[in-house]
C-alpha cells in the first residue's frame, strides 16, 4: 500500500529532522505514561501482593472484579476522571483539568487494575510454592508479601510493562482529561488522532510508527535486563 510506504518515510523524516515539537510530544508522552506506571505500580503491586497472600471475606469477588477492570474502556475512565476534576466536580477546586497531571491520574486509574491483577496472579503462584517454607521460617503474611514482591520481581516487571503499554497506547482518556492542547497536553496518541482528523494519514501513521518503536525499544530493554537478571538469579 502506497500510504504505508509513505508513513514509514514520514516517520523516518520526522525522526531525522529532530523536530522540536515532535521531541516535546514524545517526551510528554513518556513522562505522563511513565509517571502513571510508577504511581500505579507503587499502589498496584502491594494491592496485588495483599490479595495474593491475604485471606479475607470477598477476596474471590475482588479478584473477579479486578480481572474485569483490566478491560476498562479508556473513554469511560477519561469521562469519570473528567467529571471528578471538572470545575463543577468534587475535585474541581484543584484546577488540574487539562494538565498533564490530570492525564497521569486518568492513566493511573486505567492501568492500576492491570498491574494489580497481573501481579496478584504472579505472586499467588509464587506463594503456593513458598508458603510452607516461609511459614516454617516464621514469616507472617505481611513480611511474606514483601518477600514475594521482591522474589517475583522479574514476573512483576512484565505486569508493569503491560501497564505501560496500555498507558502509552490509549488515547480516549488523555484526550478527554488533557484536551489535546498544543504544547501543553498533546501526546503521541492525541497527536495521531488530530492528524487523522485533519486527513493527514501518512503523518498520523508516521507518528504511530514512532510510538510503536518507542514502546518496542522500552520493552526490549526491559526484556534483556530481565533475561540477564534471571540467568543470574534463577
Amino acid at each position: 500500500m502506497n500510504s504505508l510506504h509513505e508513513a514509514f518515510g514520514q516517520a523516518a523524516a520526522l525522526v531525522a529532522s529532530g523536530d522540536a515539537t515532535l521531541i516535546e510530544i514524545v517526551l510528554l508522552s513518556l513522562r505522563v505514561s511513565l509517571t502513571a506506571v510508577l504511581v500505579a505500580a507503587l499502589i498496584g503491586l502491594p494491592i496485588g501482593a495483599a490479595i495474593a497472600v491475604g485471606r479475607f471475606p470477598g477476596r474471590r469477588t475482588l479478584i473477579v472484579v479486578l480481572n474485569a477492570l483490566m478491560g476498562l474502556p479508556p473513554v469511560v475512565v477519561g469521562l469519570l476522571v473528567y467529571l471528578l476534576l471538572s470545575r463543577a466536580g468534587p475535585l474541581g477546586a484543584l484546577g488540574i483539568l487539562f494538565t498533564p497531571t490530570a492525564m497521569v491520574i486518568a492513566q493511573t486509574v486505567l492501568i492500576l487494575p492491570i498491574i494489580a491483577a497481573l501481579s496478584r496472579q504472579a505472586i499467588e503462584d509464587a506463594w503456593s510454592e513458598y508458603q510452607e517454607q516461609l511459614r516454617s521460617l516464621g514469616a507472617g503474611r505481611l513480611s511474606a508479601a514483601f518477600t514475594l514482591l521482591w522474589d517475583t520481581r522479574f514476573s512483576l516487571l512484565t505486569a508493569v510493562l503491560a501497564g505501560f503499554g496500555r498507558a502509552a497506547a490509549e488515547v480516549g482518556a488523555v484526550m478527554i482529561v488533557g484536551g489535546n492542547i498544543d504544547g501543553v497536553t498533546r501526546v503521541m496518541t492525541t497527536a495521531i488522532a488530530l492528524e487523522t482528523s485533519k486527513g493527514d494519514l501518512p503523518l498520523a501513521l508516521g507518528l504511530g510508527v514512532i510510538l510503536i518503536s518507542l514502546v518496542l525499544i522500552l520493552n526490549a530493554a526491559a526484556y534483556l535486563t530481565k533475561e540477564a537478571a534471571q540467568r543470574r538469579y534463577g
Binding site: 509517571t35 504511581v39 494538565t99 513480611s143 514483601f146 518477600t147 521482591w150
Partner: peptide
C-alpha cells in the same frame, strides 16, 4: 527488614520524580 527498606527507597524515588514535575 530489607524488603521494606527497598520498597521505601523506591517510593521515595517515585515521590521525588512526581515532585520534580512542576515544569508541567
Amino acid at each position: 527488614m530489607d524488603m521494606i527498606r527497598r520498597t521505601l527507597v523506591v517510593a521515595a524515588i517515585g515521590g521525588a520524580a512526581l515532585a520534580a514535575a512542576p515544569v508541567f
